[in-house]
Nucleic acid binder design. Structure first.
Lengths: 152, 152
DNA sequence: TGCACAAAGACAATATATTGACATAAAAAG
DNA sequence: CTTTTTATGTCAATATATTGTCTTTGTGCA
């Protein structure tokens, strides 16, 4: 390897570093906010994914992995915990023997309601100081970077 | 708890969810890009923190935790690996017996150079489609949200 | 000066993130 | 139709994330 020192674009590296920091802080403070329910932010995202009306009939593990951008193995372990807690159900897919349908249970809907009650305030505070337009731009940038970094 | 269904602000929750997804994708694809060096994105951020001229004399573990927004325990384990690999050194602080000074070794500087050579391209691709102004706004939003969510 | 409290870094336990591997089922190819 | 290849979800291993805890050291206050 050459001895020439590489200078990274400072703005580029700062974006990635900020993502790293912000994600860490998000999980830490989010989990703290939800600690009374014993729920992590990651579990919230799993439950939230299942609560959408368009997936009322359930989601496959694979679909969830794609949606959440987590690995199959990680999701499987998270689902173990959520199933054990009675919040989700794994049902055999009727069309494909290899596949499962994951659905929210009634208890899952209830805890999600409790979660959202807490997260409402948490989320509001997290975006303080950003206008609605800022927020929408922010989503656009995040989405763009996410897609740019996505490898198949 | 009341039975009334809570409706989250869709923009707010999407910001948090995008952060979650983007962070996952960032670590996965970053680690893939750096796989030939056997370095993770997290280790890169540790090494990067130590390479700044203003911390030439080293950083305490505590300072690094604050800078990186990771826990002391997590950083300690990461430093174990980086020290074992010969990239960082833990030296006793001369003023405070409880404290350590963490410094980059010469090998640490070399691997960091190799890392940055790879990350240069990775970072460039990750921000494709965002103007310089977009990138600067992005940093501003990330910083704002990070600070809003930071609890002491 | 002595005591109470806090800070520093590391050990322990647990949850989440990845890749690798596997058995079963489905799809594709010839 | 048969064989090869791919897909699905889970087990295994490892790295990173957290909180809790501990011992040693340092600080502040009476």
């Amino acid at each position: 390897m050459s001895d020439k020192t590489v200078e990274l674009d400072e703005i580029h590296s700062r974006i990635i570093f900020r993502l790293f920091q912000t994600s860490n802080v998000m999980h830490r403070s989010g989990a703290l906010a939800l600690s009374e329910l014993g729920i992590t932010t990651q579990q919230w995202s799993v439950l939230g994914a299942l609560s959408r009306p368009k997936v009322e009939s359930g989601m496959s593990v694979n679909d969830m992995c794609s949606y959440l951008r987590v690995s199959r193995q990680n999701l499987s372990v998270m689902l173990n915990r959520l199933e054990a807690a009675g919040y989700v159900e794994r049902l055999q897919d009727k069309v494909d023997q290899r596949s499962k349908r994951i659905t929210l249970t009634e208890n899952g809907r209830k805890i999600l309601n409790d979660i959202n009650r807490i997260m409402q305030e948490f989320l509001g505070k997290s975006v303080e100081g950003l206008s609605r337009d800022d927020q929408i731009s922010f989503i656009h940038y995040l989405t763009r970077v996410r897609n740019n970094m996505t490898t198949d």
